[in-house]
Amino acid sequence: MGFKLLSKLLVYLTASIMAIASPLAFSVDSSGEYPTVSEIPVGEVRLYQIADGVWSHIATQSFDGAVYPSNGLIVRDGDELLLIDTAWGAKNTAALLAEIEKQIGLPVTRAVSTHFHDDRVGGVDVLRAAGVATYASPSTRRLAEVEGNEIPTHSLEGLSSSGDAVRFGPVELFYPGAAHSTDNLIVYVPSASVLYGGCAIYELSRTSAGNVADADLAEWPTSIERIQQHYPEAQFVIPGHGLPGGLDLLKHTTNVVKAHTNRSVVE
């Protein structure tokens, strides 16, 4: 069995187990497998329904001669939608809004960016022009300005110390501490036991640490421990890039980060 097929099978099995364990909360999309990078042309966006009122959005972007996937989250909030992270750029984010209108038909009224990198804030200006209120932590807003990236308009308070959590509509926002970046936030959907790890969490097929220019490698494993301790009931975990899975993604990420750190020390 090929690795790609095995990865998709694991996603399907995880979703099936969740649907059985929580039949009222989960209505997993039966329309197909989780979209992969090879299936999404740059400039297009796919939506994948995880649970009743919960979707991931998947886009792709060219970077350094390669094409990478990027995940975000959409959560229903009454007759409105909360968006977590842009679709990595203005063109993708405009396509995301169009796809949401086509498939869901509810307005996106608020959006949260989970850290300051372009795959999370690139497209904020498109959201703002569409009347979406954009939010991020003060740290993310400051770092985005320093980096020359787009800056969300509103500040999220109460997320300055490791372990801080605040309720934001249908989700809980959690600051686990520094990891992929010093400002990275985690998003949890309690009604569906869905954990969105953003770039602080890796997919299972990833074996290298990737972009760690703004990471705190020493603190990252401790931050992941905080996530595990705060959300032990999480059933569906979405990484910032690639295929979702279960809580095993947290341990896998820790292993990859520690291996990278150990290699760096040896070198």
Results as ranks from 00 to 15, higher is better:
150 E>R: 02
56 S>G: 15
44 E>A: 12
236 F>R: 10
59 A>Y: 05
178 A>F: 06
111 A>Y: 07
143 L>E: 03
9 L>S: 12
23 P>G: 10
118 D>R: 05
53 G>K: 09
109 T>D: 06
68 Y>E: 11
175 Y>Q: 00
86 T>Y: 03
87 A>F: 01
66 A>Y: 15
177 G>I: 03
16 S>Q: 15
192 A>D: 06
91 K>W: 10
147 E>S: 13
75 V>S: 03
3 F>Y: 10
158 G>C: 05
247 L>E: 08
187 V>K: 01
142 R>M: 13
92 N>S: 06
85 D>E: 04
264 S>V: 12
200 A>T: 06
20 I>M: 12
138 P>N: 09
131 G>D: 08
37 V>N: 15
15 A>G: 09
262 N>I: 11
33 E>M: 10
161 S>E: 14
212 V>S: 12
154 H>Y: 10
188 Y>G: 01
43 G>W: 05
24 L>H: 14
130 A>P: 06
2 G>P: 14
250 L>T: 01
239 P>F: 02
255 N>F: 10
12 Y>P: 05
73 L>R: 01
243 L>Y: 14
99 E>R: 13
97 L>S: 03
43 G>D: 09
258 K>A: 11
237 V>F: 04
229 Q>C: 03
59 A>W: 03
107 P>E: 10
51 A>C: 06
112 V>T: 03
163 G>S: 07
159 L>Q: 00
33 E>T: 09
259 A>F: 08
176 P>G: 01
56 S>Q: 15
141 R>S: 04
28 V>Q: 09
120 R>S: 05
169 G>C: 06
64 D>K: 09
253 T>H: 01
205 S>K: 10
207 T>F: 09
44 E>K: 12
207 T>D: 15
241 H>R: 04
253 T>W: 01
235 Q>T: 14
143 L>G: 03
52 D>A: 12
101 E>T: 11
70 S>W: 00
224 I>K: 02
14 T>K: 08
190 P>R: 09
244 P>Y: 06
38 S>W: 12
183 D>I: 02
132 V>L: 03
60 T>L: 14
41 P>C: 06
42 V>A: 15
5 L>W: 14
46 R>Q: 09
53 G>V: 08
97 L>V: 03
5 L>F: 13
155 S>G: 11
186 I>R: 01
197 G>P: 04
211 N>E: 13
90 A>Y: 08
10 L>N: 15
85 D>Q: 00
43 G>C: 04
172 E>Q: 06
37 V>Q: 15
258 K>Y: 09
183 D>W: 00
205 S>R: 08
147 E>M: 14
29 D>R: 11
205 S>N: 10
43 G>P: 05
22 S>Q: 12
214 D>L: 06
207 T>G: 12
42 V>M: 08
119 D>V: 05
92 N>V: 01
94 A>Y: 15
217 L>N: 04
198 G>W: 04
177 G>R: 02
82 L>C: 03
99 E>D: 08
116 F>R: 04
233 E>A: 12
227 I>E: 00
210 G>N: 05
89 G>A: 02
33 E>P: 10
23 P>E: 10
49 Q>L: 10
211 N>L: 09
1 M>F: 02
194 V>A: 06
216 D>N: 12
204 L>D: 09
74 I>P: 02
106 L>C: 06
49 Q>V: 11
157 E>D: 14
214 D>F: 06
141 R>A: 04
81 L>W: 02
197 G>Y: 01
116 F>W: 15
101 E>V: 09
230 H>S: 12
10 L>E: 13
20 I>W: 11
86 T>W: 00
201 I>T: 07
260 H>L: 08
14 T>P: 15
150 E>G: 05
266 V>S: 15
98 A>E: 12
170 P>T: 07
170 P>V: 06
128 R>G: 11
